[in-house]
Design a binder for these strands. Structure first.
Lengths: 200, 200
DNA sequence: CAAACAATAGTACGACCGTGCGATTCGTCA
DNA sequence: TGACGAATCGCACGGTCGTACTATTGTTTG
């Protein structure tokens, strides 16, 4: 039998852990608090996650898998080229507001938490973000091949600027929360895409 | 007499606290760890800072004052217009590598820490970053008045994109650390300034 | 030099942390 | 149904956290 009781609990733990981590960060995530949310005793929960460090990795793994499902996969169904690139961007922007992460993007919270704390969790985070930049660069390459973006465009440069703009937008959104923030970020992306289209 | 012994210690505490906070974040900052660095007992230190929450505010205050001295003030000595705007950007970029913040920009660490934790520390952080965006916007306005930037440029839009690009760059730098990161960010800023110059 | 005061140390407290371990309940299958 | 293994609990441990309180230094000043 594949679906045992423990598996269901395990899924529930990951769901709630991701949600909680988005509020308090990976470092602020606590076994007691999580246990209470899941409806388990602290030791019952501990048996599932083996250790705090492993829990952090599990949370990242869960977030990465959801990111793939919600952002990357749908974009791959869009037509090759600029439409797909745009889908990655807009999917990413709504990712930060996903209902299962009430405290906001868990990657962002993890970046500050882990950026000076080596270990498996940090390694996994870094590789995931590296993959994301690479996915953006690949989509840019495809758009060049399709003739949507200019031939002499550096796809990694575009990926860099897109990534930076995305996280920068997130900082402005979470911290200052000016109502015009979204419109300005959209304008910035349009300018960026415009310059990727126009031959230099 | 103005310069008592306690004042000197106080300055030393702020210096070391800023340095330590840049490594572990505001939330990760600990009275015991700080006391050891300063060479004080935990209670001796506590007498200086009144409370943990107040220590966080003090650290932010210290960082803000240094930011003003190291980034804003020097830029104001540059010629009005684009040179001054460029000085703000380049000053900001080197701010993230200041020797007194070995763990990187303390504002960035604080943003993730405080973004879901209301209180005086968060308020101070938000106002400081709001001020920074505003300073960028003001510099952009001046550059428009000087005829360096095009007349129909929205200075707040430029400030938004500059701010976002700066923090986005920082994420890429700290997390992934590709050696080409700096060059790409510089290219992005050049493109941004170019589009601010060119009449649309 | 001594009195007055600022600065620091010592110690204790309650709360919470992650973790181990033995006991107990519960779901599953012969 | 009865037994076996997985899932969960209760409890305790050592450690660290921020914060009081009191005692003891050290520094300044009349």
């Amino acid at each position: 039998m594949a679906l045992t009781k423990g598996d269901a609990t395990h899924r529930d733990i990951l769901r709630k852990a991701l949600s909680l981590a988005s509020e308090v960060g990976l470092g602020g995530l606590t076994l007691s608090a999580l246990a209470e949310r899941v409806g388990l005793s602290k030791s019952g929960l501990f048996a599932h996650v083996s250790s705090k460090e492993n829990l952090e990795v599990l949370v990242l793994e869960e977030a990465i898998s959801r990111f793939t499902d919600l952002v990357v996969a749908p974009a791959l169904k869009e037509p090759r080229g600029e439409p797909r690139f745009r889908a990655l961007i807009s999917g990413w922007l709504s990712w930060g507001k996903a209902e299962f992460m009430p405290g906001g993007c868990v990657f962002f919270a993890a970046i500050a938490d882990l950026d000076d704390r080596p270990g498996p969790a940090r390694d996994r985070l870094v590789s995931s973000q590296r993959d994301w930049v690479e996915a953006l660069a690949t989509a840019a390459k495809v758009a060049i091949a399709e003739g949507h973006f200019r031939a002499d465009l550096d796809p990694h440069q575009l990926a860099h600027e897109t990534f930076a703009l995305g996280y920068g937008h997130y900082v402005l959104l979470r911290l200052i929360g000016d109502p015009k923030t979204e419109a300005r970020t959209n304008a910035a992306f349009e300018r960026l895409l415009e310059s990727a289209r126009t031959p230099s």
